[in-house]
């Protein structure tokens, strides 16, 4: 059925299965465009699992905002097929972000120091790359983010 994400006191359900299915259809072709294989944006040291539960919601909220504001928006799909698949991912992650905003409204998505620190590290990994390369790499690393959600 649906996957329940436990993010501290913020608990939401999401169709993670559908999102994974959507990404698996474009994973290899997107990752093949990422030629900088010495750098990784989403690193283990910033994973949701390695973050204390209370800060997980805020960290995820920030990561999703990065994807929605700067990755999907600036990604240049090679064809309509990929474009539709990326649209599916963007809209699916948007529904998760909307649920997290509800948690925020109900004061169950606090932003502590750890979340802020880890997100700034992720952002610096993202920004140290040329813009278009960063967008392609981040999109190719969605399987890492989805694995973090799977384990949440």
């Amino acid at each position: 059925g649906l996957k329940t994400l436990h993010l501290g006191s913020c608990v939401i359900t999401t169709n993670l299965h559908g999102i994974r299915s959507g990404f698996s259809e474009i994973r290899d072709s997107v990752q093949a465009k990422d030629e900088i294989i010495d750098i990784r944006i989403l690193r283990k040291t910033q994973s949701l699992q390695g973050t204390k539960p209370a800060d997980r919601c805020c960290l995820l909220h920030h990561i999703l905002r990065l994807y929605l504001d700067r990755v999907f928006k600036n990604y240049q799909p090679p064809d309509h097929h990929i474009f539709r698949k990326v649209s599916r991912l963007a809209n699916s992650l948007l529904t998760i972000k909307k649920d997290l905003r509800l948690c925020h409204a109900h004061m169950s998505c606090p932003c502590g120091e750890e979340a802020a620190e880890k997100y700034s590290q992720i952002l610096s990994h993202f920004e140290e790359l040329p813009p278009q390369a960063a967008v392609v790499k981040a999109l190719g690393e969605l399987d890492i983010l989805l694995q973090w959600l799977e384990e949440a």
Partner: peptide, 17 residues
């Protein structure tokens, strides 16, 4: 246009499959 496109890239429309 999904909700994402209309919120973040409103000039973008996707041709139907």
């Amino acid at each position: 246009q999904g909700e994402y496109e209309s919120l973040y890239m409103s000039h973008i429309w996707i041709p139907s499959s």
